[in-house]
Amino acid sequence: MRFIIILFFVSWFAGNSAKSAPITFNTALPVSNDEVIVRGQYIYGEASGDGMQFSQNTLVLATGYGINSKLALFTVLPFAQKRLQTTMGSRQSSGLGDARVFARYTLLQRDGPGRTFRIAPFAGVKLPTGSSENTDVIGILPKGVQSGSGTFDGFAGVVMTWANTNWQNDSQLSFQSNGVKAGFQSGSGFNADTSFQLRIDDQALGGGAPAYLYAVLEAGASFKARDRLNGIEITQSGGETIHLAPGLQLAARRWIAEISVLAPIVQNLNGAPIKPDFQTRIGLRINY
């Protein structure tokens, strides 16, 4: 039971790691026709409580391809190392996690000189590409330490972007519904995220190429239903979290580098003993 309880914060790590721009989630800005964007992020996070310590190193590789200027396809591949330290010892796993594939379509676009407003719905599926049956010398690993969920999960949402050359605001609503494996179903989740990026400096890089330095502040709220086992709710699961994530972003002509620290400021986890502490991200985006 205790190891089922840690699922919430693990999915908190995984859910945030699977999102793309601004830093912790998506944007409605375009991927041009026949253009490819590659994004890599390294994420480190910790959670603790009740004598347990959880840590996760994740490398996320995301690619976006513009089918046309309005429709883009994205894939997200996470590679994670997870470690749970308890009074009984350490349990850990590493490997490919669950991949995400989704499409985003620009529904509304209003452009002006040096500014734009866009709304783009998106939908996709999380694939069970990560192993959900890893074992160690003790036996099968707890669900929260497994590389993957073992289920196909659907998600959908909408993202809005309002940008000009001095600042940008992205806001996103998303919902995820999870499949069932061996009678276990992780609770559905609803997320609301917003990001504000303010240009604080213009820099001339080598060769006179311009780059913009942004100060970034992101906030998000996650609402997760209780997990179910054979149709019965697990009491100490699910809950709500609100987080803040300040960061910096350097946007050049062909690449964007970014760093942020995400910390929960409100956590109501229905009595779950272990809670997320923080998450740091370092990332790079390259435009081809």
Binding site: S32, Q109, G114, R115, T116, T165, Q168, R254, N287
Partner: peptide, 29 residues
């Protein structure tokens, strides 16, 4: 209209530079 960052200008300039006869391209964002 619609360009808000260096990424935007770079992708537009790249497309224009592919046109035969274009010698240089600069952007005022």
């Amino acid at each position: 209209d619609g360009m808000t960052c260096p990424f935007c200008s770079a992708t537009s300039e790249k497309a224009l530079q592919k046109i035969d006869g274009v010698k240089s391209v600069t952007t005022d964002l």
